[in-house]
């Protein structure tokens, strides 16, 4: 809304009064809009703080009862009011690490393909498809995991892996169903790939063209350009992206609870059932009432929140350091 500026010479008292009213309105308007925006921003910060408070608050009784020993104790026996997060922590770490070890290389390769190899037409199709993968709701992925992936894992992958790599204890003999740490890890892999892939694609696309030209003008093969220039100048960003993927895997509750089999022991074989912090909450919370049981589930939430925040903060920190370096380098 542009205000037509009246030439000062032609002022009349009425116009002047109208203008001063308007000025006053503008001052109030400016203050008001700024105030509302500021309030919204502060509300966001307050929500974060409140989330932390509520979760810790809910965990209060369990924290005072079990202390830090909760982290290592493996027993989880609601009937005897004995709770420990040991095996869940183990399951969380194993599934997330597995997902990251398998998913990150695939995702980074996809990022390389989309940014450096794919013809423009193919990129325009494959790029949104990869992001579609991230749009599939976890509950549907988990449902698909139980009914399609788990049977396939049970009938084909477990026997094959056991046959080929059975000398490694993690590939134990096949179990009765496909619900296992292994299947959960595969589901998480599917979930982290699109996250890491789209971030690393954007990072690789931002590598200055003249650096890549400089490398290929020295008689470097495509891989050597990637290895020598593209990856080193994006490495911290890629690490940050992987950490964001890890954070996603650590916190995924629904899909994991559907396929992991809700086991309560630490097992060597990946084909056994297990459970994770997030999945245990999703699985058992709806059936509890107030009390130590519920509070222990909140305690699991506290652990999850702490791990999640740390991986997120580290990712942000690395990501920022990277963009700072980039600003200096260019």
């Amino acid at each position: 809304m542009s205000t037509p500026a009246a030439p000062p010479a032609l002022q009349n008292p009425r116009a002047a009064r109208a203008r001063s009213r308007r000025k006053k309105a503008d001052r109030i308007g400016d203050r008001l809009l700024f105030g509302i925006c500021l309030a919204a921003a502060i509300l966001a910060i307050a929500v974060i703080v409140l989330i932390g408070y509520e979760v810790v608050n809910g965990a209060g009784p369990a924290i005072s009862k079990f202390g830090l020993g909760f982290l290592v104790h493996q027993d989880w026996q609601p009937n005897f009011k004995i709770f420990g997060a040991g095996s869940l922590l183990f399951g969380t770490v194993v599934t997330s690490t597995f997902a990251l070890l398998l998913g990150a290389p695939i995702a980074i390769s996809i990022g390389l393909y989309l940014s450096l190899l794919a013809p423009a037409g193919v990129r325009g199709i494959v790029s949104p498809l990869v992001e579609m993968l991230a749009a599939i709701p976890s509950v549907i992925l988990g449902f698909w995991g139980v009914l399609v992936l788990a049977p396939f894992v049970h009938e084909h992958m477990e026997p094959w892996l056991h046959g080929a790599f059975g000398f490694i204890p993690i590939f134990g003999s096949p179990e009765t169903t496909g619900a296992s740490i292994f299947t959960a890890s595969l589901i998480l892999t599917i979930m982290v790939i699109p996250i890491i892939a789209s971030i690393s694609r954007d990072l690789f696309l931002a590598v200055p063209r003249d650096l890549q030209d400089g490398a290929s003008a020295l008689g470097a093969t495509r891989w050597e350009v990637v290895r020598g220039v593209v990856l080193p100048s994006t490495s911290s960003g890629v690490v940050a992206a992987s950490l964001l993927g890890l954070g996603r895997a650590l916190g995924e509750a629904i899909a994991v609870s559907q396929v992991v089999g809700a086991g309560s022991a630490i097992q060597t074989s990946l084909f056994k059932t297990g459970d994770t912090l997030a999945a245990r909450i999703a699985n058992q919370f709806p059936g509890t009432g107030p009390g130590l049981y519920q509070s222990s589930l909140f305690y699991l939430g506290v652990i999850l929140l702490v791990i999640g925040l740390i991986s997120n903060l580290v990712a942000q920190w690395i990501g920022r350091r990277f963009s700072y370096e980039g600003a200096v380098a260019r």
């Binding site: 200055p208 003249d210 650096l211 400089g214 020598g228």
Partner: peptide
């Protein structure tokens, strides 16, 4: 090249 492009 026109613009110096040393690797980082």
């Amino acid at each position: 090249f026109q613009k110096p492009n040393p690797f980082p």
